[in-house]
Write a protein that binds this DNA or RNA. Sequence first.
RNA 1: GGGGCCAUCGUCUAGUGGUUAGGAUAUCAGGUUUUCAUCCUGACGACAGGGGUUCAAUUCCCCUUGGCCCUACCA
Length: 490
Amino acid sequence: MVRVRIAPSPTGLLHIGTVRTALYNYLFAKHEGGTMILRIEDTDKERSTKEYEKDIIDGLVKLGIAGDEGVHIPGDKGYRQSERTEAYTSDLKKLLEEDKAYYCFCSKERLEKMREDQTAKKLPPRYDGCCAGLDPAESRKKVDGGEKAVIRLRIPQDKEIKFDDVIRGETVFHSRELDDFVIARAIDDPLYNLTVVSDDHDMKITHVIRGEDHISNTPKQILIFEALGWDYPKYAHLPLILNEDKSKLSKRKNKVSIDDYLNEGYLPEALLNFLALLGWNTPDEQEIFSMEELIEKFTLDRVHKGGAVFDIKKLDWINGEYVKKAIKDDVDGFYETVLPFIDGKIPTDDPDLIKKILSDPDFEGRFKKLSEIPEELAPLFGEMPDYPLELLAREKFQITPEMLKTVLPKAKEVLGAVDWERGDSSKSQEISDKLVGIVGELGLKNGQVLWPIRVALSGLERSPNFATLAVYLGKEECARRLDIALEKVV
RNA sequence: GGGGCCAUCGUCUAGUGGUUAGGAUAUCAGGUUUUCAUCCUGACGACAGGGGUUCAAUUCCCCUUGGCCCUACCA
């Protein structure tokens, strides 16, 4: 039975990289019919906060990769490391009793200086084993007497540590490259490598799927597993997500918090689809996948080894595809998700009108992100921006003010002859035909008629086309805007 | 410095001991009875370098180079 975990530490908002790792764990677990555990790694009391923890859990639930039946979250069947101190203490005691670990009384200052010296001599910075030879009973007495001491793992002298990475194949480290690293600040204050091992064992994790940046932690953790006499899980190290300059994705160079993307109007499914493709794909040419398809098709053997640059342009494209699909499939649901983005910017007293606009073919593809919607819809609501006569009498189309004096009233007359309810797109063709008819009637060119009409209706250099504008502006507003244009001419 | 990982268009990637090295995105150009957007068509664009192995290497091996990760009493 496959059992995986996603183990974020609550020291920041939910990170894109965490989401990708969570997604791969989720897809793997679901594909294999296994379970996934959400474990909050909050042993660093200085940096961990409840706010971040909440943001992470809520975010994963919101994205749909935690909180359902197969994925346990803290309070449910998930875990919080801060609540497992007894387990760690008991493991630490065992290691101490069996002399697999020892107390170290070295001061931070001494260690720091030692590291500096080693670095200066171009030696690898390693613990010198100063306290390794201390009598355990003596050390114990000193600690009981209140003296401060960290706990270090005793590393085997000359040993190869091998593991078969599911994604990378056999990976070998030599124990000589490691030093007796600290596994706890105190008997009741464990550090990362110890807690991970303790948790992964107690939680019966079968596969550890995590970022490549943990490869070098793996031999350390394996050594702890062995010291404790436990089998260790299978490891799968995922390629990193990269900044444009190929360095590890960082908030200095990119937006990394998932909230930023959600707030900008990227859809959760689009985000997940995009993230899934960063380091994994299918041999066919499919790029858009539903969650069901991802679960069905996801396998670790198709995960890449090389890191992938986070390309926001591609995300925009994928999001655009999802937006189009969402409008076609369920415009009511889409309107609900759009509401927070347009509220206060576009009148929302007539939801049906907005839904019609969103569904209009002329609006297809006009927004890739929900945050772009208010701006795109603005020409249809409220007051137009003021614009100069030159915009109306565009030189490019050889439009003269004299032409406008006949075209604009003609347009008003033609539109006056058509009856339509604001938003009745079935009249779009008729409106269009009538306005295009002016072209032949006055013996002008398309641009000489249609451009000024469109500008008059929108006040903008760029906008949806004249018929679309007319339909959604409504008859009265069209007349009013044509009058405004006419005033500029006379 | 040490250790580890990685290497196909700008980016995400497919792929094979013999292919016109494929797709997507981005960019550019043309078209879609006005603009913008969409859409369609087209163009541009890659096997890091050097050695081997082989009749034949982008593909297998080695080296170099380059990039990245780790090198905490963070996770």
